[in-house]
C-alpha cells in the first residue's frame, strides 16, 4: 500500500511537472534552418542588411509559393541587431541557426569597426549562431546569393565544402565566428578572412582580407 502511495505521489509530481512543458516548445514543422547568413552594409545609406539562405527543399518553387515569403530578400536597419530582428519578423517560421555553415559579409561592413563589433557583441550575447560557423567576405553578397540559386545544393553547404577542400590543399586556417568573437576581446591576432569572388557565375576563393 505504501509503495502504491509513493508511486501515485511520484506520478502526481511528474504529471504536474509535465504541465509546464510544451507551451514554449516549437514543433519541427514550425522551424526553418538557415544554412548561410549574409550581412551587408549599404555604402550609400550605411544601412545594415541581413538575410539567410535555407536548405534546397525550402527554395523549391512550390514551397516558396506556399509559404508566401522570399527568404533571400534582405531586410535593412540601422544596425545588425535591428536588421536581424526585422528579418526574423518577416519569416513565417522560427529560424533555428544551429545548422548555419557560413556567415557572409561585404567589405564595407568589415571595414566599419563600430558596426562589425556591434554585430559580434550581439551574436555573443544571443548565442544563436554556432561558434564554428565559417566567415567569408565578398563584394556583393546579393550577387553571390543569386549565383547560389543555380547550384544543386544550398549555398551554405556549397561554400562550406569549397572552403574546406581549399584548406586541405593550402593548409590555410579558416577563421570561424568564434575566432572573431574571441579576437574582439583579446586583440592579439589578425585573421585572414577568405574573400569570395564571382567570375562568370562561378564562385571562387580569391585571396583573403585581414581583420
Amino acid at each position: 500500500m505504501n509503495k502504491i502511495r509513493k508511486l501515485l505521489l511520484a506520478l502526481l509530481v511528474f504529471g504536474g511537472a509535465v504541465q509546464l512543458a510544451g507551451c514554449r516548445t516549437t514543433e519541427l514543422e514550425d522551424r526553418s534552418f538557415p544554412m548561410l547568413a549574409a550581412v551587408k552594409e549599404d555604402p550609400e545609406t550605411q544601412q545594415i542588411g541581413f538575410t539567410c539562405v535555407f536548405p534546397i527543399l525550402r527554395m523549391e518553387p512550390d514551397a516558396a509559393e506556399e509559404s508566401g515569403d522570399d527568404p533571400a530578400a534582405m531586410e535593412y536597419a540601422g544596425d545588425f541587431a535591428g536588421a536581424w530582428e526585422k528579418y526574423e519578423d518577416s519569416l513565417n517560421k522560427i529560424a533555428d541557426y544551429n545548422h548555419l555553415k557560413v556567415l557572409l559579409m561585404n567589405e564595407d561592413f568589415l571595414k566599419d569597426d563600430k558596426q562589425y563589433e556591434a554585430m559580434l557583441a550581439f551574436l555573443q550575447e544571443e548565442e544563436s549562431f554556432p561558434r564554428n560557423t565559417y566567415v567569408c567576405i565578398t563584394d556583393d553578397p546579393e550577387a553571390l546569393l543569386k549565383a547560389g540559386e543555380n547550384l544543386n545544393e544550398d549555398l551554405g553547404t556549397y561554400l562550406e565544402e569549397l572552403l574546406e577542400s581549399h584548406r586541405k590543399g593550402n593548409e590555410a586556417i579558416l577563421p570561424t565566428l568564434g575566432d572573431l568573437m574571441d579576437e574582439k576581446e583579446n586583440r592579439r591576432k589578425t585573421w585572414a578572412i577568405p574573400y569570395l569572388a564571382l567570375k562568370e557565375d562561378t564562385i571562387l576563393w580569391d585571396g583573403s582580407r585581414e581583420k
Binding site: 555573443q124 561558434r131 564554428n132 570561424t176 568564434g178 568573437m181 574571441d182 579576437e183 574582439k184 576581446e185 583579446n186 586583440r187 592579439r188
Partner: peptide, 22 residues
C-alpha cells in the same frame, strides 16, 4: 584556445570548448 580576454567573458568556457572541438 580562447585567449584571456575572451575567456574572462565566457559563462561556461569548458562546455563551449567541448562544443567546438573537431
Amino acid at each position: 584556445t580562447f585567449g584571456e580576454g575572451a575567456l574572462a567573458k565566457m559563462e561556461f568556457p569548458a562546455v563551449t570548448l567541448m562544443s567546438t572541438v573537431q
